[in-house]
Design a protein around this nucleic acid. Structure first.
Lengths: 247, 247
DNA sequence: TCCGATATGTGCGGCAGCGAACACACACCC
DNA sequence: GGGTGTGTGTTCGCTGCCGCACATATCGGA
């Protein structure tokens, strides 16, 4: 996994001009993230932002009674901890590692410094890039909201699989149905049924915590439009678009 | 309504330091917004941002089949058109006037100018304020997503009424059940039933497009926690908190 | 004052997802 | 290679909301 050891595996970092990038690199710290690790708790002061390379992190909204739902997913296209540069310092949501891997982390005040830097000639590449990412994040949340309202579990599962897949270098997810249910905020049995449908349709293969995607195009067809909306908006707002999809 | 003719009825404008404010004021244009007016369509280039004074605007996410859902509501605490300073220029959502009234509008490039201004001594008050507002907006969207997932229509109606009420100078809404249903992305009949429940409970009074809130505290008790989460986050992030509530 | 448009109330069958309880089956470890 | 824990499949009745169809009430203008 020497690939994950290159900060520029993260597409935000990769999109920075060389001078900004070289200024930041020495401050980046490679960290290994395990499934279930919690990067942020609601209301707790954050100290770092994270740039995933081959890990995936879910932003979850947790309610008083413990019920929860994923509101966005962040992989190598993004950053965890936008509130550190947005000015709020904390958020009411939780960040949980959904797929183990690596990320580079950076002290919040270091990022802020770079974010606020106007620079002699160049006008804040870090600043502009992070704001564009944040707008993409807004879109993802908005789409999640409307998706929760209108779409069936089958469709949402497809969307979720695709969004995760786009953020991984492989076509396989290590993920139990229980965990997926937690992310989507539904019953585990519901996921069992939906996943069974997809398997019967020959779109995925399931074996005890391993999901392999067999027919990506079929998944997209079965997914609600929310996946495409989010993907396209990321492509529009961020360099190199939503994903370096092979096909 | 001479009150609505004061830009500082809008709490973002009110929160600006005097020099920024006086620089902006001459550029502000008072506009009257009627129920149903559309300020932005998905993907269309925006030219202005809007600072509501006594109007309310809903941000809607509209799907291919026409189904829609509100993802956030903006009143005198906020601004419509964050993508103009976030860098995206457009959004995939629609902005619809939910409650008629006034707003001040400002050319996008003028706002951007002020947003990017670093200023001699002061470090971008406009910049920081708008980013904090945007973070609050993020929270509102996130909470909408989880609310759509987990809460009953009764609870959501309460939340919606309270959020709208906080953004109005009066305790009465001009709003048909049909429109509310559109906002929430549910059936009109469902709203009829939920509103009937609230009326039976003595919390509101309903008469053909007019909703009067009789027992605000009761509404809050019946609402899901989402209302309080959003309100508190606005209070935390923005000067003077979520609302100048009388009680 | 009456009419018509518009808003609201109500009743049906249907379905997706919930919550609980249980049977099975695979993987891994000793 | 046999157990044990943890994933997965399946069943039940129940509820909340949908989609449709229609009855009634209210407002505002001619």
């Amino acid at each position: 996994m020497s690939d994950s050891q290159d900060p520029r595996q993260n597409r935000l970092l990769a999109a920075l001009p060389d001078d900004e990038y070289t200024r930041l690199v020495p401050q980046l710290e490679l960290v290994s993230l395990s499934l279930g690790d919690v990067l942020y708790e609601p209301g707790i002061q954050m100290h770092h932002v994270y740039f995933p390379t081959d890990s995936i992190v879910s932003l979850m909204c947790v309610m008083e009674n413990g019920a929860a739902a994923e509101i966005a997913v962040v992989g190598n296209e993004g950053i965890i901890g936008v509130s550190l540069f947005m000015g709020g310092e904390t958020t009411p949501s939780r960040a949980v590692v959904q797929s183990a891997g690596y990320a580079y982390r950076l002290a919040g005040d270091r990022l802020k410094e770079e974010f606020d830097r106007v620079g002699g000639r160049r006008s804040g590449a870090v600043h502009d890039l992070l704001l564009r990412y944040t707008q993409a994040l807004l879109t993802q949340m908005a789409q999640t909201a409307v998706c929760n309202r209108h779409h069936t579990l089958d469709q949402q599962l497809c969307r979720w699989l695709l969004l995760s897949l786009d953020r991984l270098p492989v076509q396989e997810l290590l993920m139990t149905q229980e965990l997926i249910a937690n992310m989507l905020g539904v019953r585990r049995e519901g996921v069992t049924e939906a996943a069974g449908n997809l398997q019967k349709a020959g779109l995925i293969e399931y074996r005890r915590g391993h999901i392999t995607v067999l027919d990506r195009v079929g998944l997209e067809a079965r997914s609600c439009e929310c996946y495409a909306v989010v993907r396209d908006e990321f492509r529009r707002l961020l360099p190199e678009g939503g994903e370096p999809q092979p096909d």
